[in-house]
Design a binder for these strands. Sequence first.
DNA 1: AGTTGCATGTAACTTGTTACATGATTCA
DNA 2: TGAATCATGTAACAAGTTACATGCAACT
Lengths: 184, 184
Amino acid sequence: MARIRKTKYVILGLLTHGNLSGYDIKKIVENQLSHFWSESFGQIYPAIQELEGQGFIEPAEKKPDIREDKKLYKITNPGREELVAYLKRPVEEEKIRYEILLKLFFGGSLSDQEIIKQIMEFKARQEERLKEVAAYERELKSLLNISRDHVFYYLTALCGKNVYQAYIDWCNEALSILNDVEKR
Amino acid sequence: MARIRKTKYVILGLLTHGNLSGYDIKKIVENQLSHFWSESFGQIYPAIQELEGQGFIEPAEKKPDIREDKKLYKITNPGREELVAYLKRPVEEEKIRYEILLKLFFGGSLSDQEIIKQIMEFKARQEERLKEVAAYERELKSLLNISRDHVFYYLTALCGKNVYQAYIDWCNEALSILNDVEKR
DNA sequence: AGTTGCATGTAACTTGTTACATGATTCA
DNA sequence: TGAATCATGTAACAAGTTACATGCAACT
């Protein structure tokens, strides 16, 4: 890994939008960031404790209507600075491991039919994802004017749409090429 | 992680192309698989020992011209079966973590200029990668007829080309949208 | 009364990287 | 002779997932 841990910045970032608990953060990541990010409870809760120890977040007062055992946090000024410093740093080289390409690289050990099956399954999954993210993108496009943040949400969905479409296009090209090879 | 370990299959796959040492495997991954895969020595050597213990690979006779301290391995028939069983299994859901989208999602904490800078840096890196993989793709396209395997190598390069191009297109759309927003 | 969801947290495990140790060979 | 590359391996660490433990609240 050696890539610096991002969980802390996800928490800081989400806390700039409002006070949240660990559970809230997990739900938001699942619901709104899932097409480009994931976090597990096993990462979130220890990271919260670390952030509190560093003074980057602190307990927030709860309104009386929320349950006793829920711990709400808010971001502090040093926390904001820490987040901004991270956001300004260049994006790290993401390590890429595409299993479909690995399997294709060793295609010599499979029959054409088996390879075609793998690509079709992969394509079907990308189509599902595209459908989801394209619906999300259309929704966000209509909300573009309601806040500056909505532009950013829209752009993340647009990226997903482009990338999934690129995979689907590649699947079609690959299937067509394999079909030509098979016939000759 | 929880995703099953792929290192073993990379080793088995490469050994179907010829007898290799751990060092050879590392070099091939770096030179030929680097646009979609990576492995470190810390994974390769223990995996080799495990594969040998399972009888999936075994020491190969060396030609007298290669050095004493180099350990060449060859794949066994059970090893071939193990590889094929893996290749036939559906491709696992890859976990996606795009840091550029994370940073963009929290764009509210940065100025337009800072966001634009991040996207331009990201775009420049994708353009570099595209250049590399597109050159590789053109080369492989001309070699398409020399073996069945070359079709697979070509398709992996083509996929990289499509995906990097999709990122670049998205960067341009994003920059144009951010420019419009800035002006109003 | 039982199931589902809310809520916090820990422990064991897996995967992966980095740095280090060691030494041979090749080439300028 | 010294640097770069070849070559194998280990140990410490970092990151991330999964399963588990615990208990409250809401609803059916």
